[in-house]
């Protein structure tokens, strides 16, 4: 593992953070009355699109994986379609998990689903970009001693911190402060966003500090 790798990782992560910041400011030029809290759903969609786009572009440019052996068009298309299906499935999966966790079943379905979409954007999309539609690889990455590169390591950290951020975001909901961001699911989406950003910041640093200890099996 070289320092250049870590540098590349850092730059890609900074670009991801930049995309989130852009998603906050750019729409206000085109849309009237745009603000994160009041037109939250719009922001969710825009942020999700931005982050997905940046992730895809970065994946195509940086190519952290060794290029796959097959490169026929049909293979790529099926792979892409598979990715889309996986993304949708993860959205539904998260939706179900939120409802099981206590989100309202019938009211606010759109809000809950968009929350699932944004969480999928923060977690599933990077997984799809890096590992492809391969559940077994995912399971491997998210287990002890399962990572094989710094990219996977950073993926592990950002994904887990996104989840933790989402989880922590649920805590202010019962408080009686009566702030606009305490409404479901704003605090959770904000928590997820903060968690994702924190993961993006922390993971290069953490890998940099622990670069001596980290050894990856390459196979």
């Amino acid at each position: 593992m070289k320092d250049t790798d870590i540098k590349r990782l850092l730059y890609t992560h900074l670009l991801c953070i930049f995309s989130i910041i852009l998603s906050i400011f750019i729409p206000s030029f085109f849309l009237e009355n745009f603000s994160i809290l009041e037109t939250h759903l719009t922001w969710l969609c825009i942020c999700s699109v931005f982050v997905t786009a940046v992730n895809l572009v970065l994946y195509l440019v940086v190519k952290p994986n060794a290029s796959s052996k097959r490169s026929s068009l049909s293979y790529k298309v099926t792979r892409f379609l598979k990715c889309c299906i996986y993304f949708l499935m993860s959205c539904f999966f998260f939706h179900v998990i939120f409802v099981l966790y206590g989100a309202p079943l019938i009211e606010l379905v759109l809000e809950t689903f968009l929350f699932a979409v944004i969480l999928s954007t923060f977690t599933t999309v990077p997984c799809l970009c890096l590992l492809g539609p391969n559940i077994k690889a995912w399971l491997r990455v998210f287990s002890r001693n399962g990572v094989t590169s710094i990219w996977e390591n950073s993926l592990q950290i950002t994904t887990i911190s996104s989840f933790i951020g989402t989880w922590l975001g649920a805590f202010p909901i019962p408080l009686d402060w009566e702030r606009p961001w305490q409404v479901w699911p704003i605090s959770c989406t904000l928590g997820a966003t903060f968690g994702y950003v924190a993961g993006l910041v922390i993971s290069p640093l953490w890998i940099y500090w622990n670069r001596k200890q980290l050894t990856y099996k390459n196979n």
Binding site: A137, S143, R144, G146, T148
Partner: peptide, 17 residues
């Protein structure tokens, strides 16, 4: 359980793909 590899057969975890 998953993290500690108790859910999946060890083969899957150590040898990828």
């Amino acid at each position: 359980l998953h993290w500690e590899g108790k859910l999946l057969p060890p083969k899957l975890l150590t040898i990828p793909r």
